[in-house]
Design a protein around this nucleic acid. Sequence first.
DNA 1: AACGAAACCTGCGCGC
DNA 2: TGCGCGCAGGTTTCGT
Length: 272
Amino acid sequence: MPELPEVETVVNTLKRMIIGEKIIDVEVRWDNIIDKISVMDFKDKLINQTIRDIKRYGKIIVFILDDYALLSHLRMEGKFYVDERLDIDKHSHVIFSFADHRYLRYHDTRKFGKMSLAPVDDYLNHPFLIKLAKEPFDMEVEDLYPKLKKKSIPIKSALLDQSIMAGLGNIYVDEVLFLSQIHPETKANKITKKQAQSIIENAIKVLNKAIELGGTTIRSYTSSLGVHGKFQNELQVHTKVNTPCPVCGTLITKSQVKGRGTYICHKCQRKK
DNA sequence: AACGAAACCTGCGCGC
DNA sequence: TGCGCGCAGGTTTCGT
């Protein structure tokens, strides 16, 4: 599910539900979810820690505890549920038990998600975050343009690279390139400064609107924490194959860019 | 160094 | 109905 707006929605929901909760037990049912640290260490360090705050950096969720930061990346399908009583299914891989008898349950059908721990006063240097670029909200064209100049990959691939710009994924990158009238196969180093400026502005516009609407819900995702967004109704091109472009009426086409499903209007997004 | 492919996983919808 | 294939909102690692 998650690009920046979906993660933002999850974080906002979790903040309302579990700030102040003390972790009294941790169960890990699929070890590979835990990264860069042993499962034993992970559990030992988390027990008796209280959740003080929850933050988001790009697509990364950071639970601020007393002595540690718990970092979580949902990747493709990760979700958090807060349960009154334990309700484990075969896709529930990490369960945190709270002192007030509730549970935080990490659910991930494809098991791609990752969690890790860092010292609370040094978590920005954790491998999950160390290479993360700024989000478009904090970006000037001087932050983006020089990075694009160095890459000969398609602009779409460059914008999916979280060390160039943080937060976009496959849905929003298609929307941003459509609004910016840029063909996704355009080489990143051919992007003009003006186009880079347009990418930043449109990314801010799209992400803010998506956050406002609670993210995008496409394909059969059951309702869960934050996953009941309304932005799918605002999508201009993504998933819209064979429907008319909202600007010019040309039928939207679907292709592959570096293996990723990509939707464009060939007339509005001319290949240079 | 740079690129694409494969890997990590499961489930769903489609065509035959 | 059953089966195989392609595809899925992500990222890292492997191999040329």
